[in-house]
Amino acid sequence: MDFNRHISRRLHEEHEATLALWGRLEQTLAMRGAKPPTEEDLRLVRDCTAQIADEVTRHFAFEEKDLFPLLAASGEGDIAGLLAEEHATIREAARRFGELAQPSADLQARWPEARALALELAERLVSHVQKEEMSLLPSLEDLLDEETDQALAGSYV
C-alpha cells in the first residue's frame, strides 16, 4: 500500500525493516532446528535484541502517546486498545529476550529458551505489524491533515 502521509511512510519503512530482520531470524532458526547455534546465529539474535529494544521504546511509545489516542477519538477505540495490548505483550517478551541475550549472559547455554522466545517474538511482531498496516496506517491517511502530519513527523526521531 502507498501512503501519502510522512508519518505513515516512516512507520511503514520501520515495519518493513523489522519484518525483514525478524523474518531472517525466523528462517535461520527454522532451518537450524534443534541443533546448537553457530556464532552467526548468536550475532543475528543479538542484532534482533538491539532492534527490538529500540522498537519497543521509541516506536511503540510514539504510537501510544501520539497515534492511538487519535485512533480512539475517531471511533476505533477497540483497535487502539488491541494494538496497545499487543505492545504490552511484545514489551514483556522483548524484556525476557533481552535478558537472555545480554552480552554477559550465556546465550549458548540457554539456547532452547532463547530460540522459543525468538520464534514467539517473530510471530507476534509479524502479526502486530500486519494489524497496524491494515488499520492504523490507513486510518492516519484520513485522520491527519498536512500540518499535523508535519508536526508528528518532526517530533518522531
Binding site: 488491541l82 504490552a88 514483556e92 514467539e120 510471530e123 502479526s127 500486519q130 494489524k131
Partner: peptide
Amino acid sequence: PFLASVHAGARAPPLAS
C-alpha cells in the same frame, strides 16, 4: 486463527499459530 487471536481479549493475546 488470525481473527480469533484478534478477539481473544486475553492479557497476552494467543499467537495465531
